Simulated scan of single mutants.
Amino acid sequence: MNYGISDLSIIPVRSEPAEKSEMVTQILFGEHFEVIEDVENWSKVRLAYDNYEGWVDTKMISVINEEFYNLLAIQAPAVANDTFNIVFQEKDYSNKLIVPGSSFPFCDRKEKSFKIGEKKYFYQGKVTGNGDETNVRDSIIEAALKYFNAPYLWGGRTPYGIDCSGLTQIVYKLNGISLPRDASQQVLVGEPLTFVEEAMPGDLAFFDNAEGKITHVGIIWDRHKIIHASGKVRIDNVDHQGIFNVDTKCYTHKLRVIKRIIAQV
Score class of each variant (00 low, 15 high):
69 Y>W: 10
158 T>D: 11
111 E>L: 10
61 I>F: 06
126 K>N: 15
116 I>E: 13
197 E>W: 09
224 H>P: 00
141 I>W: 05
206 F>S: 00
100 P>N: 13
247 D>F: 04
150 A>T: 12
12 P>K: 05
44 K>R: 15
244 F>Y: 14
196 V>A: 10
34 E>G: 04
193 L>D: 04
202 G>M: 09
192 P>D: 06
169 Q>T: 13
199 A>V: 00
5 I>M: 12
250 C>H: 13
208 D>Q: 12
233 V>D: 04
36 I>H: 03
159 P>N: 15
92 D>S: 14
250 C>P: 00
246 V>Y: 01
219 I>W: 04
265 V>G: 07
36 I>T: 08
232 K>M: 07
30 G>C: 05
14 R>I: 03
148 F>K: 14
93 Y>A: 13
264 Q>E: 15
39 V>K: 15
153 L>S: 11
249 K>A: 14
247 D>Y: 11
182 D>A: 05
152 Y>S: 06
161 G>Q: 10
236 D>C: 00
148 F>D: 08
176 G>F: 08
234 R>I: 01
31 E>C: 01
198 E>G: 07
160 Y>I: 12
15 S>H: 03
138 D>C: 01
244 F>R: 06
248 T>V: 08
109 R>Q: 13
129 G>T: 12
176 G>W: 08
260 R>M: 13
186 Q>S: 04
19 E>N: 01
225 K>G: 00
31 E>G: 02
260 R>F: 11
142 E>F: 05
85 N>L: 09
95 N>F: 15
53 E>W: 02
234 R>L: 03
243 I>L: 07
14 R>H: 12
189 V>N: 06
32 H>I: 04
141 I>Q: 07
100 P>C: 15
177 I>K: 08
122 F>T: 10
191 E>N: 10
117 G>S: 02
67 E>W: 02
